[in-house]
């Protein structure tokens, strides 16, 4: 499948944290022919293993991308059949007016809805000045009467935003949940590449659950794998209008994380390899990475970690914007890093 087509499928399949089953199914369908074995963990993460193709398994590397997304659960059904929402993960109420949403009923059926916005003609002066708040957000379920809403939707059903993938100029695309489905796509592309090459280490490709609520999915998957090296691939806040501080730029390459969570040895190797294969690389230092890496790092006896990110504008909105060049460069970098892992862990790191 074409990358963009697959990405549209991945982002339009609902997977609010803790309810990733449907997106996991899409991923499994895509990877089952690309790995030696795969399974789903008790917390819903998908682990795919692509064994060393040289037959000299000298170590285990885990590459993890989270498959969950921010969203909502239904909190209340109002008179008239309107839904009130509670958030899952960091959702900004300021972007919600007049958004389209999908309600995933506990029956398995999906319903379309819109988040209502009072027409300016009907607003009072006070309402005009009010800032949006989650308390006043409501969903109008399209085509269902109040009775039908009450019969088919209940409190606790998940709700996601609806916004198809859109191509912009150059190699840039826009969509919802590119945080972190863009790296889910990168992981699938990585598995495709691994099928064409010789490498010494066993590669565990992980699609983790529940990153947006604190990474229990990645933590427990990493516990199972006990990797010698872990790499979290995620998105990072890209340069954006309205923010003065210098942020990673779109199209200027993947972003390497630096700081106490990240192994200086792995980071150094990645920098060296990027230069060798001519992949542009940007650097970003932080104490906490804000990714699955923070959890993976401390699993079991500890895991040396790297973080590689795709710069993304408008994070946690329905217009998350990335440059596909950065994704392709991320995959090239991961491929080359895995190719060069030819020593044992002790030889390489101590």
């Amino acid at each position: 499948m074409e990358d963009i087509e697959l990405l549209d499928k991945l982002t339009s399949t609902p997977g609010v944290s803790g309810s990733e089953e449907k997106v996991a199914d899409v991923i499994i369908e895509e990877i089952k022919g690309l790995c030696d074995e795969y399974h789903t963990t008790p917390l819903g993460s998908v682990i795919a293993l692509k064994k060393s193709t040289s037959g000299r398994a000298k170590g285990k590397i885990e590459i993890s991308a989270h498959m969950d997304e921010i969203g909502f659960v239904v909190a209340k059904i109002e008179e008239g059949g309107y839904l009130r929402l509670a958030t899952v993960g960091g959702v900004d109420p300021k972007i919600l007016s007049s958004q389209e949403v999908t309600i995933i009923s506990h029956t398995g059926r999906e319903y379309k809805g819109v988040i209502g916005a009072l027409a300016p003609h009907l607003q009072t002066e006070k309402e005009r000045k009010e800032q949006p708040s989650h308390d006043t957000v409501f969903v109008d379920v399209i085509g269902l009467s109040e009775d039908e809403v009450r019969a088919n939707i209940r409190v606790g059903d998940t709700v996601t935003m609806h916004a198809p993938i859109l191509r912009l100029m150059k190699n840039r695309i826009v969509g919802k949940s590119l945080d972190d489905r863009i790296c889910v796509l990168a992981n699938i592309k990585l598995l495709r590449e691994l099928n064409k090459m010789i490498f010494d280490w066993d590669v565990y490709v992980v699609f983790s659950s529940q990153e947006e609520i604190g990474s229990p999915g990645a933590r427990t998957a990493t516990y199972e794998i006990e990797p010698d090296v872990g790499i979290a691939i995620d998105v990072t806040i890209g340069d954006i209008h309205g923010v003065k501080e210098k942020l990673p730029k779109l199209g200027k390459g993947p972003v390497l994380g630096l700081g106490p969570t990240c192994s200086p040895k792995i980071a150094g190797d990645i920098k060296k390899i990027a230069k060798e294969i001519n992949v542009p690389l940007q650097l970003e230092a932080s104490v906490r990475t804000g990714t699955d890496a923070d959890s993976m790092f401390l699993v079991g006896k500890g895991v040396p970690i790297a973080v590689l990110s795709i710069p993304l504008r408008h994070m946690h909105t329905t217009v998350e914007l990335i440059d596909m060049d950065d994704v392709n460069n991320l995959v090239r970098l991961l491929v080359e890093y895995i190719k060069q892992l030819d020593k044992t862990y002790e030889e390489a790191f101590l």
Binding site: D92, I240, H314, M315, T317
Partner: peptide, 10 residues
């Protein structure tokens, strides 16, 4: 095509 973005909640 174009989009109207906003600074992330983070």
């Amino acid at each position: 095509p174009g989009v109207i973005g906003f600074i992330p909640i983070h």
